[in-house]
Design a protein around this nucleic acid. Structure first.
Length: 590
RNA sequence: GCGCCCGUAGCUCAGUCGGAUAGAGCAUCAGCCUUCUAAGCUGAGGGUCGCUGGUUCGAUUCCAGCCGGGCGCACCA
């Protein structure tokens, strides 16, 4: 909810990672100084990237600029690294250590005091910590799910829904103005088949023998819809002529199924700002206008009695039919008109979330972008691969033929919306996903959803216990954090500090799973810390264990307690923010 | 046949605008713990990053060619 208010804060909070930003500007300064002194030429400025080194002894952050510059400077990377290091050493309020290693790595160790600032920063920014202004001023439309209203949503749609929503929120978080839209295919052949199928079932219920339409919808839900229709207005229906009756069945079935889809999405916690009807495009003449535009640029031609779009002109492998010999428009016709409409609404970026089996459709839609005078990159298609449902390692079989499949609703009812979303977002959307229902509903640390949510709940529990013991945690600004010197503490802070970068990388790559992965790592680090260290002092009543075997409980002074509480509060904030972006709740208790 | 995606530990997968000794979870094995703030902790083994070449100081990452798997090549959605 608070996402819609982001844009007004974005100007104030530019967080490319608090510490990272300082280090980058220090590096930039060092390079400038070196250039001014004539030590380096620096004809073109390198991109300053910071990596978190794999080994702790390599410092907090590392950069490879020296090696990147080696070629253009025509000098050994090590020398360049030395020059940078020398110029960096004047900025020693930031660095504890600057080391040059082998080919030309620059390993930087930032002073703990600088890291501690991150905690204050997180507290200051709260729910907007991690957001950035990358996309400010740009409008993007994310279209997803868009399932035909001819049946309930299945598991694949669920993954698409989770991915689409996460993408939308991710882009909002980095400053874009985002609208989510569902395109309703409420026209054409599918609807006719739906009407015919339901009509046939209604006739059956009325005791009339009918032949079920070829390629009709066989699912049980069709019968259910027919039964409802028969009950509610069987009498009125009987009075109609057959084709009127079929028409009526189609309308009622459509409404009923679309309603079902809306309800399922609501149950999944997915909301669209906009629902766009294909039929409305046809009714408004938008398709004809789209054609006229193309006609004008000679991008349409007639051949073999059909009308073709010259998509090959824009890199598609061949031209495509938009109006068939029989005079009917193809689905491509509506899609052209629909995407033209999106463009006319002034979006800077269009994102379509599709099933991966539609990938062959991308070139022709990007051709549409170009036909209307936009770069093809204006349309970005995010592909979502199939979900393989497992139950305790065994594949759950589904048969398409009989029209029976596992619905999204069934999965939600079994594992809950949070777990379903998390699992859908755990892997790169373009790869196949194994989704184990048993694992997803487990309430244990083996279940990654619980593991992450538990990190949040666990900290909430601290507040409850602290409150009960009358311990209050003052704002970070008023707290002496210098007692946080343990590697586990500083490690957590470094992890927190990386959150804005993760968020941004995840957003620009359209890959929500990176954030999911990060949250698992952060949770793991939190749990490790939590198991190893105390935050609150032991309760007064259950004092000393017998001396001897029990591991010596860590001494914990009030000062340390307070500082660690501040740390915990920051971890909790970041977990909450991250889960929020993924559309997953952050429970206070589990 | 052409095109797109995937191929990383026993399993499921991260990591690639080129960087150091390639990571996580599960499983396996070995210890410890049965305590609290809440559902245990610590460690180990495990890899020709599909194969072969190329570019590079440096390739899991980029390029080419193969191999294997998936998907797509409609006047179907």
């Amino acid at each position: 909810m608070f996402f819609s208010f982001f844009s007004k804060y974005l100007g104030d909070f530019v967080t490319q990672g608090f510490v990272q930003e300082k280090v980058v500007s220090a590096l930039h300064g060092a390079l400038s100084d070196a250039k001014a002194k004539g030590q380096l030429k620096i004809e073109s400025w390198p991109i300053l990237t910071l990596d978190a080194p794999k080994r702790p002894e390599w410092g907090d952050l590392a950069t490879t600029v020296a090696m990147a510059l080696a070629a253009s400077e025509k000098r050994a990377p090590h020398d360049i690294a030395q020059i940078i290091a020398d110029n960096l050493s004047t900025r020693d309020q930031l660095f504890e250590r600057v080391e040059i290693v082998r080919p030309g790595f620059l390993n930087l160790t930032v002073k703990p005091a600088v890291w501690l600032e991150v905690l204050r920063e997180i507290e200051r920014q709260g729910a907007v910590f991690g957001t950035s202004s990358l996309g400010v001023g740009k409008r993007v439309l994310v279209e997803y799910v868009s399932a035909n209203p001819t049946g309930p949503l299945h598991v694949g749609h669920g993954r698409g829904a989770a991915v689409g929503q996460a993408l939308a929120r991710l882009l909002k978080a980095v400053g874009y103005d985002v609208v989510s839209e569902y395109y309703i295919n409420d026209a054409g052949r599918q609807m006719k088949l739906l009407g015919a199928s339901v009509f046939a079932r209604v006739q059956e219920l009325a005791g009339k023998a009918v032949t079920f339409p070829e390629e009709g919808y066989h699912g049980v839900y069709i019968r259910e819809v027919a039964e409802r229709i028969q009950q509610s207005e069987g009498a009125q229906l009987a009075a109609l002529a057959p084709d009127e009756m079929e028409q009526r069945c189609r309308d009622l079935a459509y409404q009923s199924l679309l309603q079902l889809i809306r309800e399922d999405l609501a149950a999944f916690g997915i909301e669209f700002e906009s629902w766009f009807s294909e039929a409305s495009l046809l009714a408004s003449g938008a398709v004809e206008r789209a054609f006229a535009d193309l006609q004008q640029q000679d991008l349409l031609f007639e051949s073999e009695g059909a009308l073709w779009f010259r998509s090959s002109k824009f890199g598609d492998e061949k031209d495509r039919v938009v109006r068939k010999q029989d005079g009917e428009c193809t689905y491509l016709a509506s899609d052209i008109a629909y995407h033209r409409d999106k463009l006319q609404r002034g979006y800077d970026l269009l994102i379509d979330v599709w099933g991966a089996d539609h990938h062959g459709y991308i070139p022709r839609m990007q051709a549409v972008m170009q036909a209307y005078g936009h770069p093809k990159e204006r349309l970005q298609v995010v592909l979502v691969q199939l979900v393989k449902l497992l139950r305790g390692g065994e594949e759950v079989k589904m048969s398409k033929r009989s029209g029976e499949f596992i619905t999204m609703r069934e999965v939600l009812d079994e594992v809950g919306a949070d777990a379903a979303k998390f699992f859908f977002l755990m892997r790169d959307s373009k790869t196949h996903l194994d989704f184990d229902l048993e694992l997803a509903k487990q309430r244990s640390a083996d279940n990654p959803v619980y593991y992450v949510q538990y990190a949040h709940a666990r900290i909430s529990s601290l507040w409850r216990v602290a409150a009960a013991r009358g311990i209050v945690c003052p704002p970070a600004a008023d707290t002496d954090l210098t007692v946080l010197t343990d590697p586990d503490e500083l490690g957590l802070i470094r992890k927190l500090s990386a959150y804005p970068e993760i968020l941004e990388a995840s957003a620009v790559a359209f890959e929500p799973h990176r954030l999911t992965y990060y949250l698992q790592q952060l949770a793991a680090q939190l749990h490790t810390f939590y198991n190893k260290h105390r935050v609150l002092p032991p309760a007064a009543d259950q004092e000393p264990q017998e001396s001897g075997e029990a591991p010596v409980a860590e001494e914990i002074s009030p000062k340390v307690t307070i500082a660690r509480l501040v740390l915990m509060r920051a971890v909790q904030q970041v977990v909450k923010n991250g889960l929020g972006v993924l559309g997953i709740s952050a429970p206070e208790q589990m």
